[in-house]
Design a protein around this nucleic acid. Sequence first.
DNA 1: ACGCGTAGCGCG
DNA 2: AAAGCGCGCTACGCGT
Length: 567
Amino acid sequence: MYILVSASAHGTAEPQGVHLQALDDVGHPTADAVVVPLADLPRKIAKLETKRPRWVFENVRDWYPQLLADATDIDIERCHDVTLIRGILRFATSAAPSPYIEVLHSAPLDDTEDALPRQLQPPPPAPDQGTLFESGPTTSGMPLEDLRDELQAQLAAIAQSPQAHRLTLLTAAESAGALVAAEMEHFGMPWREDVHNDILTTALGPRPREGHRPPELERLAGELRTTLKNPTLNPDSPQELLRALHRAGLEVKTTRQWELEQHNHPVIAPLLQYKKLSRLVTANGWTWLDAWVHDGRFHPEYVVGGVVTGRWASRGGGAMQIPRVIRDASRPDPGHRFIVADAAQLEPRVLAALAKDSALAAAARGRDLYQGIADQGFGGDRSTAKIAMLGAMYGATSGEAGRLMPQLTRTYPQAIAVVEHAAREGEAGGVVSSHLGRSCPPPSPRWLQAQQSTTADEQRRAEGVARARGRFTRNFVVQGTAAEWALCWLAELRRRLRTAAGPGPALGKLVFFLHDEVVLHVRDECVEEVEAIVQASAAAATHLLFGNIPIDFPVNAVVVDSYADAK
DNA sequence: ACGCGTAGCGCG
DNA sequence: AAAGCGCGCTACGCGT
């Protein structure tokens, strides 16, 4: 059963409050809607949760964070996030056609803000609304009736799809992800401000006044000015820096790290050090600490499905780009440990599963897939095998990876055929899909227009653009399916942690997620049990996605007292 | 003063 | 050895 949750009812004179309505499995009402005051919502949810419904929100983001903040014991097993599923169905080629899907298709392509076309957009809030729920969920959400209609349309598009089973799983996993994201945001990642400050001070000297460089950066800047004989040089300006380097006789095209490393000149070492420290202080320095860490927790904001491939993105705090040097500041609370787990070589394993490539599956049999590939076709050289495999999934054409492609194609014809087919499809303006049915966006009108070019010059450019799309679709099938595996893993982890705890205290909390890696904050005495759950969840994710296949998706899990000690 | 594109670098 | 996928963030530097 489903239970709709909406802050507003359209066209009724009912008192304001939260409207709840129970629906059957295809979205038809089984009882009249009820209205409960917002303050009673947690209690009402607890009562109805015993029926194990799927809670339907227009947006989990608009409801769940506040519920977590208000009621410590809030307990939701599963949900359906109408906005996230709308985003999937908008492009999913396996969705059953319907007027609803037509409307989704009619949304302009470049609107990144939301995928909701104007016809379906909620009416602007009436001026007299918005006073009752000042700290609560939005009042400008969809009316109950519209939410119900859209849920029905979504369920029909999924159920009548030839891939109903896969789309159903994707819908559940994506929605579970929304719950996990809100819970991780709420709990936060344990973060020791004092340790972080020590790291910064050791590298940079004491915290400078606002708008000034830390002592060590100032010293290095002085050294650069002296060496380059330019007393006013601002090393933060690539243009200035490039000119100064040219005057010093260094023929570099850019000021990128890897290019600078090729040269031998007294300015290179201090310059690379300057860049490294400058990066540290601007991206993850004291300002970052002030903005994102409170009461011993780093609170990032996750954007579920924020990446076209279905990966999560983050907003603020750069949660997906925490540099290794700063990870030592993340320490478990007393009486707790971190379990840091990551899926080993997830993407090539996903490719082996997608392609049912038994040779690649054989290489994946051991724990180290790249070593397996190396032993089968690259003379045992692991790093060469890795470059070749990554090149195949990214569409490398030149360099070492490009040269290795023929050998890889000979060894794994089926796997390579899958990514090559995806690339050809994309180059031709087509659309590709992940295993569970997340499809990539179609090419923009501008892209299609460019393909009609007439002059030789324009044609060459258009071919380049077409190949770029081919590399995107080539990678999409692999990255998108890997994201689905990770989402299922996450959902299974959440489910099993809840079941294992029962009504008692949590064994541990998910506190961080990074594409193919999770961090769990676990009570000392529960470490072994949670380790087993991590492994069982991975096996369950593999089975959910691919059924019984002879391909392992091993997970490396380590128990540590600092995030930096993982890997 | 603000918006926006670019360079550069962090992560997977 | 330095291309080939997906992101976010900061500072610069140009445009308005």
